[in-house]
Each structure stands twice: as structure tokens, then as C-alpha cells.
Design a protein around this nucleic acid. Structure first.
Length: 527
DNA sequence: GTTCTGGGCCCTC
DNA sequence: ATCCGACCGATTCGG
DNA sequence: CCGAATCGGTCGGATGAGGGCCCAGAAC
């Protein structure tokens, strides 16, 4: 763990990816392969399930440091990071022993997870007493689950490629899906042959938002247009078995068994890229995203739920056919192969239709997108291979224009991490019968300078404090942009905004001129 | 003792 | 999802 | 011609709403 803690410190001390890469390479060269395997898994975002609740952890830390719980909480609010707060407050260890990372991951953390509450705290006391101070932070990061050190999967991939002397592309392909952190992980990543039994997906192609006019992309015939469905992006594959993967590389097999069954009817050795959508059988159309959410994260959807919320996989790309990787072929070829493959698709799998026509015609498709339960259109270069990651050029999302609303700042709360100490988290409201009712929280959209100015204003105009939350004089108006509305119990207004963000600070506008709740309610009904 | 509720986490968008 | 800001590498600018 | 400024592309970090899961503690 000593070497891993040192690696963490090197990663944490810089924002330069070149330095981060070098630090990981150094670590991989010197670490025990068993430890390296776990380090790779953790750094690339594969975190163990939380072995102890935050409450028990805090209590144990309060006891170990002989501090009252409230003081620990207060310190946490100032530091903004639980793992760091605890690392700073605990007394120095009585003795120091170095336990290997793989031992922590394979023995001690599972042991902690299995233990009863009292035993968990006893174990922590025992471990803290023998843990070198500089290892605590990393240890707490492993415990709290929030292992964020600013290392992208890609950084880890590049470091692995350097350390193992392989192409980043090969490493990236082998890192897809779940990583098994066994002692031979590095060997497996470096091996010349891809294991035949893999059910791993391909790296997902992602798109940038289109800025400017679509016509600037060139002739419409070069661009394939489809709806941007409001569902869950996924790869559905059939190799030795069927499998379904989310964009975050989480297996979705358990949640959507009917899609797996459908995939088994496809010829083996094929991988589809597409969108899982909820389906309205009566209307024979896509159902709202909210319906789909009831299916997501279900361990085992019951028959009633499956009947209530039927789903479909709308395919729009074919990445593999008869075991052959098609990604290098131009989209027009892949699309043709996809249409042939799905000429008479199994129940549950559909073909996402193309939206033909020139740019003005496509602008009209886009204008109607909301009625089709789509968020806009996708525009894809027919001559381009399947993109890896999110490059600029081959794929664009041409979303609907967002709605806007002018809302009044009601409450503010301090942020975390980079934002700790700044009141960056705003709750905003609109008018109803002469009162302001909260409709949304928003932070993003202000520059650092504006945030600093807003923080100063908030401190000077606080009316009341509820713990970390301040109620402020209802004077400041912010223009919010959002993608849609839905009924909500979270906010007093009874509705919530989707993807709210601050467009600008309307310092020119008095609070009385902010928007009315009725306006938003009408918008919700009209949607 | 059983059921309800709220908070934290973690996934989607 | 969204957004801002920092960094990186390549290209252009200016002395 | 070479170093400095600039620019597009990427990456990192901090944040929204909603639903399921899990656990602890309260209510019945």
C-alpha cells in the first residue's frame, strides 16, 4: 500500500496528464503484479462496493480521535472531503506496518464488509493504529468509494500501453467491460491474442453538440440523420452468449432479460449499437424516459413491471458481424449491413429509421422531435468509420433549443472540493401567488469570477442559516436554460427542470420581473 | 416484531 | 446530462 | 528563423433530476 499511496500523492499533486502518466508507468514497473492489477482496476474507475457506511466510519473516527461528532462534521463541511478530513484528524499511529494493496482489496475490505457494525468499528480502530499516516488518505478513499484522483481511463490506458510496450488501442479494447484484477491482469492485457470467450463491448462513439447551422456541414446527402432517442445508450451483442452493456460499461443483462432473449435470435458474432427505449404498445411508439427509469437498476424485473414498461432496442449501427470487426468500414456500408441483418428483426429489436431529405426538411424533422420522444437529431458522416471516443467531426448531436426561465436566488450552499468555501450551489424559485417557490438547483454556467462575486453577495445578504444552507434576500435573478419539465415531488413547485444550468446572471432584472410558476406549468402540459 | 421513511450511494440521462 | 477551466500539441504571429 | 501567442481538441472536476437498492432508525 505504501507504493500505491505514493502514487496517489503524485497523481493528486498535479493536473498535468503527462506527469500522471509517468507516475503510473513508474508504479507499474515497480509494483507487485497482484498490486498493480488492483491499482489498474481502481484507477480506471472500478471501485469496490462500499464496505462500511459513512455514518459508522465517522463514528469510529470520532472515537479514535477523541473528538465530538459535531466537530468532525463541522470540519468536514470546511474541508469538503470526508476521506481527507478523517486523515487529518486521526491521531498518529502507535506503530506502522505496510499491508499490500492486494491484501487490502482481497482480504481486509471484504472482511470489513462482512462484519457486524460493532466489529467493523473495532477493525478500523485496529487498522488505524498500525497505519502509516501517509496511507490514510488513500485508505479512506477506498472506504468511501469516491475514488476520484483525476485519472481518466484513457490516462491509465496510455500508461499501460507505455509500460507494457503495446498499442493504446489494444489496451483500450481489453479494458472494456469489467476488469478482473487477478495477478495475471497485466499479462492478459499485453497478450498478443484476445481471449475468445470475451463478451466485452467496443468503446462507445460519442458526439459533440452541433454549434451553428447544419447546412455548414456540407451536402445533406453526405450526412445520415436519425432521431436522438431519449433512452439508454447500449450495445447489444450475441457471441458465445448474448450480453447488453451500458455506455458506462455496466452490464444491463439482469434489467432487460427480454432484450437478451431477442439477441439470441440474431446470428452469433454480431454487435449492435443503439438505444434502449420504453415502448408504448397502444400508441406503437416510444414512451417517456421516466418510464424507462423504472426498469433501470432493477435487479430482477417482475412480470408485472415487464408488462407495464415494455422495452425495445432501437439499433442504429452494426459494429461486428460474423465475428468480424466492422468499425473501420464507412457508416454507409455498416448501415446497409445493419438493414439487411434486421430485415425481419426478432421481437424487441427495431431499426432506428433514417430521416431523409435536404437540410430544410431535416430542420422540420428536428422541430417535430419532441413529439417523437426524441431530444433532437443525430447527424453522422456516412463516409466515416465508427469513431472511437468523442472526436470532433464524424458525429454531431443536433439537439432541440433549450427552454429558458428567469428565476430568483433563494438559498445558497457551499460546494465541495475545488468549490469548498464558495457558495456555488443555488436553489432558485419562481412566483406563485406573490410567493417565490423553489423549482430548481443549479450551479454550472457561471465563470469562476462570477461565482466569487455571487459568493460575496450571498455572504452579505444572508437572512437565515440552516446548517450549511443560507437563505438570502430574494433579489438576484438568474436566467436558467433547461431541456424539459416533469412533475416532481422534490421541489415545492411540483415540477422539476431537466438539466438546469445558469445561462446568465440578470443583474439588470428586478426579482419582481422573474417568471411565474404558471408559465412553467403551461409548458409542462404542452410538452 | 414488522413496516415505513429518509439518507446515502450509484446508475441513467 | 451540463458547463467551465486547465492542459496539450500544432500552427500562426511577430520581432 | 525562432520563440511567443493562439487555437482547437481533450480531459478533469463539480454540479442537476430521478429511480432502485440498502441500511438505520422511527413508527406502528
Amino acid at each position: 500500500m505504501k507504493a500505491f499511496a505514493a502514487l496517489y500523492q503524485r497523481l493528486d499533486a498535479t493536473t498535468r496528464s503527462s506527469v500522471k502518466r509517468a507516475a503510473i508507468v513508474d508504479y507499474l514497473h515497480s509494483a507487485d503484479p497482484r498490486d498493480a492489477a488492483h491499482a489498474v482496476a481502481v484507477l480506471s474507475g472500478q471501485r469496490p462496493r462500499r464496505p462500511i457506511s459513512a455514518t459508522l466510519l465517522r463514528e469510529a473516527a470520532a472515537q479514535a480521535s477523541d473528538l465530538p461528532l459535531w466537530l468532525l462534521e463541522e470540519s468536514y463541511h470546511h474541508v469538503g472531503d470526508l476521506a481527507e478530513t478523517l486523515a487529518l484528524l486521526l491521531p498518529p499511529p502507535a506503530r506502522a506496518e505496510d499491508v499490500a494493496l492486494h491484501h487490502w482489496m482481497e482480504q481486509r475490505l471484504p472482511q470489513l464488509a462482512r462484519a457486524e457494525a460493532a466489529a467493523q468499528q473495532a477493525l478500523l480502530q485496529q487498522w488505524w493504529a498500525a497505519m502509516p499516516q501517509e496511507q490514510r488518505l488513500v485508505f479512506h478513499k477506498l472506504l468511501t468509494g469516491s475514488f476520484r484522483v483525476g485519472v481518466a481511463r484513457q490516462t491509465v490506458t496510455q500508461a499501460l500501453a507505455t509500460a507494457l510496450g503495446r498499442e493504446p488501442g489494444q489496451i483500450a479494447a481489453r479494458m472494456m467491460g469489467r476488469i478482473r484484477p487477478s495477478a495475471d491482469l497485466l499479462e492478459r492485457l499485453a497478450a498478443a491474442e484476445q481471449p475468445a470467450d470475451t463478451l466485452a463491448p467496443y468503446p462507445f462513439a460519442l458526439a459533440h453538440a452541433l454549434e451553428g447551422a447544419a447546412a455548414e456541414l456540407g451536402p445533406a446527402t453526405r450526412w445520415q440523420a436519425e432521431y436522438k432517442w431519449d433512452g439508454i445508450r447500449a450495445q447489444l451483442l450475441h457471441r458465445a452468449q448474448a450480453a447488453l452493456w451500458s455506455r458506462g460499461e455496466e452490464p444491463l443483462d439482469a434489467s432487460f432479460p427480454e432484450l437478451l432473449q431477442a439477441a439470441q435470435a440474431l446470428p452469433p458474432g454480431c454487435v449492435l449499437d443503439g438505444e434502449i427505449v420504453a415502448w408504448d404498445n397502444e400508441a406503437d411508439a416510444v414512451a417517456p424516459f421516466a418510464a424507462l427509469q423504472r426498469r433501470l437498476n432493477r435487479r430482477k424485473p417482475g412480470a408485472a413491471l415487464r408488462r407495464d414498461v415494455p422495452v425495445r432496442f432501437l439499433a442504429y449501427d452494426l459494429l461486428e458481424q460474423e465475428g468480424e470487426d466492422l468499425r473501420a468500414r464507412p457508416l454507409r456500408d455498416r448501415r446497409r449491413a445493419l438493414e439487411t441483418l434486421l430485415a425481419s428483426p426478432p421481437a424487441g429489436i427495431g431499426l432506428s429509421p433514417l430521416l431523409q431529405g435536404d437540410w430544410p426538411r431535416r430542420a422540420r424533422w428536428r422541430a417535430q422531435a419532441r413529439a417523437a420522444r426524441a431530444e433532437g437529431l443525430m447527424l453522422k458522416d456516412r463516409d466515416a468509420p465508427y469513431p472511437s471516443g468523442r472526436p470532433r467531426g464524424p458525429w454531431w448531436k443536433w439537439k432541440l433549443d433549450p427552454y429558458t426561465v428567469d428565476a430568483v436566488l433563494l438559498y445558497a450552499q457551499a460546494g465541495h472540493g475545488r468549490r469548498s468555501g464558495l457558495h456555488s450551489d443555488f436553489t432558485l424559485g419562481v412566483w406563485q401567488d406573490g410567493e417565490l417557490v423553489p423549482v430548481a438547483k443549479a450551479y454550472s454556467g457561471l465563470s469562476d469570477a462570477e461565482l466569487l462575486r455571487a459568493d460575496r453577495w450571498i455572504r452579505a445578504h444572508t437572512r437565515e442559516r440552516f446548517g450549511p444552507v443560507r437563505a438570502v434576500a430574494p433579489e438576484q435573478v438568474f436566467e436558467l436554460a433547461f431541456e424539459g419539465l416533469r412533475p416532481s415531488s422534490r421541489h415545492k413547485a411540483g415540477l422539476a427542470l431537466r438539466f438546469p444550468r445558469i445561462l446568465r446572471w440578470r443583474e439588470d432584472k428586478p426579482a419582481q420581473q422573474a417568471d411565474q410558476l404558471a408559465t412553467l406549468q403551461r409548458l409542462l402540459e404542452g410538452q
